[in-house]
């Protein structure tokens, strides 16, 4: 891989890190298990690897932004996640921040804004 490609990949990873958290929180207003969540995000254009999503769900749960429950009545036990009250507040605040950032970055990156 060439050097610019390496930089792009590295920076893309950094950019996506925060976005994935926001996307996950936004989708879990109703209980959902991990595999369905991955599919739901993929359908909307955000591909997240299993190795990224599952540890992230656990981390968000540890931090109190998600809550979970094992569902044993189905063909196999599944862990359902949903956003907690704290997670809901965080989601609202981050969403607001996100839209402001998008506007700001749109302005910064606009071509006629470059000297």
């Amino acid at each position: 891989m060439t050097e610019p490609d390496e930089h792009i990949n590295q920076l893309r990873l950094e950019l996506r890190r925060g976005i994935v958290v926001l996307a996950v929180l936004s989708q879990l207003d109703v209980p959902c298990y991990a595999y369905v969540l991955i599919q739901r995000l993929a359908e909307q254009g955000l591909d997240v690897e299993e190795g990224t999503l599952y540890p992230l769900l656990r981390r968000l749960e540890k931090h109190g932004l998600l809550e979970s429950e094992w569902e044993v009545g189905e063909s196999r036990p599944r862990k359902y996640y949903r956003v907690s009250a704290v997670g809901g507040d965080v989601l609202s605040a981050l969403s607001k921040e996100w839209f402001e950032m998008v506007d700001m970055m749109h302005h910064i990156l606009r071509e006629d804004n470059h000297e």
Binding site: Y33, A34, Y35, Y54, R76, P77, R78, K79
Partner: peptide, 16 residues
């Protein structure tokens, strides 16, 4: 707990 989660997720994927 993580093992149980992984098992469930991998099996979901295989079924799908």
């Amino acid at each position: 707990e993580i093992e149980a989660e992984l098992r469930s997720q991998i099996e979901d994927q295989l079924d799908d």
